[in-house]
Nucleic acid binder design. Structure first.
Length: 169
DNA sequence: CCCTGATTCGC
DNA sequence: GCGAATCAGG
């Protein structure tokens, strides 16, 4: 391919229209974008004010929609990293306890700091992180769960209710 | 890594 | 004059 008058006119027009060198090369065919750029320079056309690509940005790739967040089996309120446990596996606790304000249930002497937590201690946070009196429950955790029976009950209560309601209705 | 234009330099 | 290779930048 060579630069005859017709192709040069096309080049001038397309360049003036703001097409990129590679786009023009594709339009004219049989030529590379380097050839286009070189010709543009030789013609003294370089230094466009604005490129069409700058004015009209190329289409973005469409994002694959994010998967909907899972809701079943996770925790309401204070959250620690906890396994999703079927509500049937959460042992029952006395209902009187569940009606009391959470903060009053855990004896002060039982509570512990983050450094004292281990597999066997309940990791339910009590209070406001950053406050000097912030602590964890420190009770005896159910095997395989990060909570004692009381806090496990609280943690998984919403799901248990939901499942139970569905069975009834 | 995709793209852009700019520059160089052997042909 | 031509354009591949390369550079610099978004």
């Amino acid at each position: 391919m060579s630069w005859n008058d017709e192709r040069i006119e096309q080049l001038k027009k397309l360049w003036a229209d703001g097409l990129s060198a590679s786009q023009i090369a594709a339009e004219l065919g049989g030529i590379t974008r380097n050839a286009v750029i070189g010709k543009v320079h030789r013609l003294g056309l370089s230094g466009r004010a604005k490129t069409a690509t700058a004015a009209a940005p190329r289409s973005r790739k469409q994002r694959t929609p994010a998967p909907a967040p899972r809701q079943n089996g996770f925790v309401r309120g204070n959250v620690v990293l906890a396994p999703r446990v079927a509500p049937e596996e959460v042992p029952e606790v006395e209902t009187e306890l569940a009606t009391e304000p959470v903060e009053n249930v855990v004896p002060i002497g039982q509570r512990c700091s983050i450094l004292e937590l281990n597999e066997a201690t309940c990791r339910w946070p009590i209070g406001e992180p950053g406050r000097p009196d912030f602590s964890y429950c420190g009770g005896r955790a159910i095997s395989g769960l990060p909570y004692c029976s009381f806090h496990a009950r609280i943690a998984y209560q919403p799901v248990a209710d939901r499942r139970r309601d569905r069975r009834v209705g």
